[in-house]
Write a protein that binds this DNA or RNA. Structure first.
Lengths: 143, 143
DNA sequence: AAATCTGTAACAATAATAGTTACATTTTAT
DNA sequence: ATAAAATGTAACTATTATTGTTACAGATTT
């Protein structure tokens, strides 16, 4: 299974807000992401609760970045859009009467936590500003 | 979402095979994992195709390790039980008319691949033998 | 007052997982 | 030979998560 696409879409949204630098409606964003505005609003709601964006109701309303793009790391976005452990352990408790069953979980947890920390380390190194810069570099080479 | 529990169960199975060092039936293994034997057989089938175990039909049959436990890394097991990308991209193609929509995917892919590689690096460092050793150390402290 | 936008509920469609029963086939032990 | 035991896989169910969709109440701006 995969880490769901909410993370990718959330980064897309934040990068778009940084690029356009004006209030964008969920409908407009949905046009860029190519999905339904409600899907966008659900993610905007998460981002808003996390303090990444401000939203404005009414005509010409929409969302804007509440924090500078270079202070928002992909790890923060990841943590907002994903919850729980990356690696699933056994769905049922292994047999406590078995030496292996009794002791496998802590062993696995140690490795899983290390692997997850390594992944998060990379995500912590990149910011929305980096994503924007990358996109702008591609735009340059397209003109 | 999570990486499914097949990975955790597969490591459990291989560690059990290493610990007991004799042919184990799917029924026996299911007793340790605490699940249905068919769930185990499905994973054994993957491990067998990958060359990690040999299986023997008939009375007193079962599975044994085909390779030494210290040569099987958790990364190899991960690759057998998981397939496809860890991070999902947008489910629909973003709008190619939008500068952000047109260019976000390669940018995301770069970061996602780096993060996945970091995770895999940790998994590559640990072997089934390490897991067994860890379990045996816990058993020591329990006696 | 009208237009626009959010936020959320509710529902459908899709997909993956885990568990289960069933059974044909193979192999070993006696 | 025969019975027992084991695999491998098909088929089905239940559960869960995600994504997309319609609908609508409430807030805000012009």
């Amino acid at each position: 299974m995969s880490i769901n696409s909410r993370f990718a879409v959330a980064v897309h949204i934040l990068a778009l807000l940084a690029l356009e630098n004006r209030p964008l409606s969920s409908k407009y964003i949905a046009g860029s992401v190519n999905t339904n505005p409600v899907v966008i609003r659900r993610i905007l709601s998460l981002l808003s609760k996390a303090g990444f964006i401000d939203t404005q109701l009414g005509v010409d309303g929409g969302s804007t970045l509440a924090r500078s793009a270079d202070t928002i790391t992909l790890l923060e976005v990841y943590n907002v859009t994903e919850q729980g452990q990356l690696f699933a352990l056994h769905s049922n408790q292994p047999n406590p009467l078995c030496p292996c069953g009794r002791n496998i979980k802590p062993t696995l947890l140690t490795v899983f936590k290390k692997a997850e920390a390594a992944l998060e380390g990379i995500l912590a190194e990149a910011t929305i500003a980096d994503v924007v810069q990358d996109i702008e570099a591609q735009l340059q080479s397209q003109s």
